[in-house]
Structure formats: structure tokens, C-alpha cells
Amino acid sequence: MLINNFLLLGAVLFCIGVYGVIARKNAVMVLMSIELILNSVNINLLAFSMLHGNADGNTFALYIIAVAAAEVGVGLAMVLLIYRNRKSIALDELSEMKG
């Protein structure tokens, strides 16, 4: 099997995720798109891990899964908080960062 199979799959998923982050308005959807990006990275890591016969890739894939879980937890909590305060999680209505 060509390693490019996996790497290209990862690339496609990554770019779809990037599109999602940019295009989506709903905060939950943005978080989902971020999950896509993280998974694509994991696929790459594991592909290289297998290519080189090295366990490091597996290790980092596991770490990324753990970090992603933490990220989703905190992210959704923040979304919840924002929703409670504003009755909306449309990201384009949140412009506190506007200067």
C-alpha cells in the first residue's frame, strides 16, 4: 500500500476541516470541524509510525486524542456559557475581539 493513500486522505480531511472552521457560523460546528483536522493529523502520524516502524507516532496519536477530548470539553462548556449569556452561538455575532 502506498503511504500516499493515507497521507492524501489526511490532507483532504484536513482541508475539509479548514473549510469548516472558516465557513461555519455555529460554534458547535466549528468544534466538529476542528475534530476533523485533528483526526487527519492522527492518520498522518500513524501512517508515518508504520512507515518507520517507530512507536512515537502511536504515542502522539494517543496524546492528541486526549488533548482533543479536553479541548471539546472546555470548548463546549464555553459554548454553553456563551449561549446562556446571549441565547446564540453564532460566531459572527461574537465580535468582542473587534478593535
Binding site: 479548514v18 472558516i22 457560523k25 466549528v30 460566531l91 459572527d92 461574537l94 465580535s95 468582542e96 473587534k98
Partner: peptide
Amino acid sequence: LQSGKVNQYGALLF
């Protein structure tokens, strides 16, 4: 895009 919106910053970044 200098709007203070997260998506657009993401777009800029990527």
C-alpha cells in the same frame, strides 16, 4: 475581514 470574528481570523491564519 477586520471584523473581530473568529472565523475570519481563522481564514486569515490558514
